[in-house]
């Protein structure tokens, strides 16, 4: 009997497919998410929109908050650590968290190195803006990839950009000759074996979700159409007028993303969405997606 194998980690991520993972800050919110049909919750002290508004250093949440949320729901619970902060990751693993997000939404602890994720039994998810970044994280042991998007903005444009970057590069590599793959690996700054995997299979070796700016059922459906396996919703739900209703609608939109009638029905009368931020109003320093490499 073996625990924490690659297959157990990546296989768990496969179970999230076609599902929605929601940011929650309290046990009550976690219950609303579960009731709406979320496949997992991300336990946080503050959602990205508040992290953005309040500034300062954003760190791993208080274990007490995470434990209360774990006790409140039967679905899997994820939590975030700072990029490169292996001690925060050790703490979350000890708590029994089901998945760790090594996240650019928090202030990075290391500007050069990410965590060696092979050293952990608990699986990790990482953000990526392009294929090279995704493959580097997978090489470090990440069991799941998500677009970085631009968290806490309610603006889907960066998530779309990152999803298209990744999918376009996959299609390009699929069409290459075998003797072109090494040069491509060099260009992407990614391991040759993983580039070869993409060439042979036409996809990443792990599940690929959308994140960072999804605010409406239509946003979620859009990301599914771009080839994402599922959706993270951060501030978009609990910063909106009617979280329970919106959460439910986004779950249905992801399952039935290809059924316009159902999409129209679930999009109706959802109350106020979160207030969005236009990306050109953000300075370079305010962009979270730039964190990590």
């Amino acid at each position: 009997m073996e625990k924490g194998t690659l297959r157990v980690k990546t296989g768990f991520a496969e179970m999230f497919k076609g599902g929605v993972i929601m940011d929650v800050t309290t046990p009550e919110q976690a219950k609303i998410a579960e009731e709406a049909g979320a496949v997992a919750v991300m336990a946080l002290e503050r959602v990205p929109a508040d992290i953005r508004a309040q500034g300062g250093v954003a760190r791993m949440s208080d274990p007490k908050v995470i434990k209360e949320i774990m006790a409140a729901v039967s679905i899997p619970v994820m939590a975030k650590v700072r990029i490169g902060h292996l001690a925060e990751a050790m703490i979350l693993e000890a708590l029994g968290v089901d998945f760790i997000d090594e996240s650019e939404v928090l202030t990075p602890a290391d500007e050069e190195h990410h965590i060696d994720k092979w050293a952990f039994k608990v699986p990790f998810v990482n953000g990526a803006r392009d294929l090279g970044e995704a493959l580097r994280r997978i090489a470090e042991g990440s069991a799941m990839i998500r677009t970085k998007g631009e968290a806490g903005t309610g603006n889907v444009v960066e998530a779309v950009r990152h999803a298209r970057n990744v999918m376009k590069a996959i299609r390009r590599i699929q069409g290459m000759r075998a003797d072109e793959l090494m040069a491509e690996a060099k260009n992407l700054q990614a391991p040759y074996e993983l580039v070869r995997y993409v060439h042979e299979h036409g996809r990443l070796p792990v599940v690929n979700f959308a994140a960072g700016g999804v605010a409406t059922p239509a946003d979620a459906a859009l990301m599914m159409h771009l080839g994402m396996d599922g959706v993270f919703v951060g501030s978009g739900i609990f910063k909106s007028g009617d979280p329970a209703r919106r959460a439910r609608a986004i779950v249905r939109a992801v399952t039935h993303y290809n059924d316009p009638e159902i999409l129209a029905e679930v999009s109706e009368d959802l109350g106020e969405p979160m207030v969005g931020i236009n990306l050109d109003e953000l300075s370079e320093e305010e962009r979270m997606a730039k964190r990590g490499w």
Partner: peptide
């Protein structure tokens, strides 16, 4: 158990 106890056999 939770995910950290998931296994193959």
């Amino acid at each position: 158990g939770r995910q950290v106890d998931s296994f193959e056999v």
